[in-house]
Write a protein that binds this DNA or RNA. Sequence first.
DNA 1: GTGGTGACGTATA
DNA 2: GTATACGCCACCA
Length: 115
Amino acid sequence: MDANKKINFFEQVHQIVRQIPEGRVTSYGAIARALGTAGSSRMVGYAMRAAPTANPPIPAHRVVNRVGMLSGKMAFGSPTLMQQLLENEGVMIANDKVVDFKKVFWDPQLNDDEQ
DNA sequence: GTGGTGACGTATA
DNA sequence: GTATACGCCACCA
């Protein structure tokens, strides 16, 4: 069924986000590239918006934009919830941005062993 | 079926 | 280096 393929897209994004290790974050573009939909980073963000509706819910707070800014913090119900969750995992946040984003960045295209 | 919107990213001026 | 424009394509009205 063609309709299944659309659902697969969301599932793919959810699967990758679920693979993000604790204390690590990734960017929408990186996920988009891992899915082969490079350039359509917006669709990744759209899929993340459905994160709380997914089952089981996915750690969408580990996904930030290219500059490490918590662009989707508003989607958590509280503009500080995303920051709190990240800080709880050891990720420091400053001015709604990830500190040492380069260090905590996790590439979905790499294997966990590589990390 | 059509139009508008959007948790972004890249290109160009 | 900063500012603005455009594209990407799935979802909602």
